[in-house]
Design a protein around this nucleic acid. Structure first.
Ligand code: FES
Ligand code: FES
Lengths: 144, 144
DNA sequence: TTTAAATAGGATAATAATATCTTAATATCT
DNA sequence: AGATATTAAGATATTATTATCCTATTTAAA
């Protein structure tokens, strides 16, 4: 499971990608309203991702966040790793310090399978996929 | 991903099941040494599980925790749900308040597949499976 | 050039998760 | 009966996560 921070990050990145596709720069107020997250907190999160090059930010009036076509090729897996680290994709299912084929924990083999499917799904899913006109309206980034 | 509490719980339950199979009642000191967890914390955790009927406890000298053959049929999934709730198995992959086929988040369909495989693995895995003589030695419940 | 609106950055606050302490109750051995 | 070793329970402490505050910096419009 993802941290709350990471869940906000994914929703925010998807939202920004969608707006960027339409040529719009969005500010944290708009983002937080559309993904239902604390405004200042999502600011902090995107600041971090922006430093790491996942999206562009501009200061000043009419500033905000923007994801270029190139950056929209980022996979969800990459964003998750940037925020939560790779524990979810590499860590042991019962919390041993590391996961190992040679010294497996009791659930190692089966857990590894599920973990890897989870990774593949997040890895093959890129932000671009949410910016198609048709797709956009049928998905939800918050709940009423 | 599981909470740390839940990871301790799984390792502890597996360890207790293994010892119970040999007819041994184990105390929290022994458990914590063998699964590498804080002694008093694992006490608290098992206290809770014991109240919920996942294992037996006995007070007093030579007391400790014990898992009957019947209780060893408990699946890891049931333990996880008892401690962390079912968010991991039912929750939305990008953190929406609930997961829905009708109002799906962008990753809903694929996430659901991975999540469900993860559940099936934890569900079909019961404590008994770790108590077979052959199995026991080749698994690790802590790392040096 | 002034004003307004935005992110950046560092500090702080609030909350939740993890861990420990203390005392009570219970059981067993001597 | 008394000593000892154990879990139970509730309170407390510590640490990590989540969230906010405040000030600085930047940009663009008026
Ligand atoms: S060692 Fe536990 S999942 Fe690999
Ligand atoms: S709505 Fe997000 S995973 Fe189902």
């Amino acid at each position: 499971m993802l941290s709350k921070t990471c869940e906000y990050a994914l929703r925010a990145m998807i939202y920004v990608a969608q707006q960027s596709r339409k040529g719009k720069v969005v500010n944290i107020k708009e983002i937080s309203e559309n993904i239902d997250s604390p405004e200042l907190f999502i600011g902090k999160i995107l600041q971090g991702l922006s430093k790491q090059g996942f999206l562009k930010s501009s200061k000043g009036r009419y500033g905000g966040f923007f994801i270029s076509e190139k950056d929209a090729e980022t996979s969800l897996a990459d964003i998750i790793i940037a925020i939560d680290g790779d524990k979810m994709f590499k860590g042991c299912g019962v919390g041993l310090a590391y996961c190992s084929d040679i010294n497996p924990c009791p659930i190692h083999n089966e857990y590894k399978t599920a973990r890897s499917l989870m990774y593949n799904i997040y890895k093959k899913t890129t932000l671009i996929q949410f910016t198609e006109k048709k797709q956009e309206t049928k998905f939800f980034l918050k709940r009423e």
